[in-house]
Design a protein around this nucleic acid. Structure first.
Lengths: 190, 190
DNA sequence: CATCGCAATGTCAGTAACTGACATCATCAT
DNA sequence: ATGATGATGTCAGTTACTGACATTGCGATG
């Protein structure tokens, strides 16, 4: 038996998610999270750089997964198709975590500080997208523009995904279709 | 003679900009800013909700100006043309503040915390754009998509504006032209 | 002219996020 | 057996931010 309980990081994440949900983000202290996980405040800060980051820990793996999805996508269509394929590919990982995602989503949306953090994570995701596209030979300008569009698609799709029970690929396809229509010039003015 | 020196808010902004520039954002305390402005820390927090907000104070007026610009734009072209016109219209206000803008820009870019704040300001600007377009009869989906594109144009244009000496309208026009070309299908792949 | 209320600031005490320095001690390689 | 290691604990300190209350010119009101 080891000296400490395992999965320290995961325990902190669980405790934080639970407390943020029960009392709200601002009214839970880091000390409370740590205690609930059977640890001390200092240890919390050894695993997460700040009180918000505990909600965004999986982000690195998430970005890497999407980057791999883009790299593995067929070279048949336009760059945006590779991104759409990569996003759809998240289904295998996310299907069973929808309830968790819902909790997280609700907490983040309720607190401007957390929305700030989410926005910067999405900004870095955009550069991840852009780099993955450039690695496939897409030019820099087109890559960054496509990347930002891809982030928009992901954001809207994810939003609908947590609010429904439909599988992710279905949602992504419909969001992409809507976007295509809009860009094609259906101005939809009154 | 009044009891206190006038322009408290402006004095705090100046002091903060100077100190952030000299020592960096993290290494200047709010107490130092307040002292340089001849005030106390508590008064700083009566004027700005937190240490970052002092750099974003003019944001409300900025958004309002852009909203008015959209409302006043001619109804001849597409919705995006109204946004482009509104952005170009900023020239009259910003022409003489380019050096100030440069300082601010450098400080914000050097600190992730400040970039977070900027991103959320841009997100609210996007909703401002969207609402202004909807007030002109643009449909909701088209409005929000156009708004986000508008924010992208503003961001890129502003970035080039601080790095050059050209007038804003010229830059906005060329950025818009590039974007049009990209969307029109110049895929620029290898 | 007296005074009364207000508005902007000051003062002070307190909470909580975050950091640096050092201590502890099971585990593991040697 | 021993000594290095790595994850954690302990503790003191800084600083962002808040709430409660005190101060005092100024302007309105009588």
């Amino acid at each position: 038996m080891s000296r400490w309980q395992p999965d320290t990081r995961a325990r902190l994440e669980e405790a934080a998610l639970a407390l943020y949900g029960e009392r709200g983000f601002e009214r839970t202290t880091v000390a409370e999270i740590a205690t609930r996980a059977g640890l001390t405040e200092r240890t919390f800060f050894r695993h997460f750089s700040d009180k918000r980051e505990v909600l965004f820990g999986g982000n690195g793996a998430f970005n890497a997964l999407l980057a791999k999805g883009i790299a593995d996508a067929p070279h048949t269509g336009a760059p945006i198709d590779a991104i759409v394929a990569a996003i759809s590919g998240l289904e295998t990982v996310f299907a069973e975590r929808r309830d968790l995602a819902r909790q997280r989503y609700a907490i983040i949306n309720a607190h401007p500080e957390l929305r700030e953090r989410e926005l910067i994570k999405l900004a870095t995701l955009a550069t991840t997208f852009s780099e993955a596209l450039q690695a496939r030979g897409v030019g820099e300008l087109a890559a960054s523009l496509t990347a930002e569009t891809g982030v928009t698609i992901l954001r809207v799709s994810f939003q609908r995904w947590v609010a429904s029970e439909d599988p992710l690929p279905t949602i992504v396809q419909s969001v992409f279709a809507e976007l295509k229509q809009l860009i094609a010039g259906v101005s939809s003015g009154k």
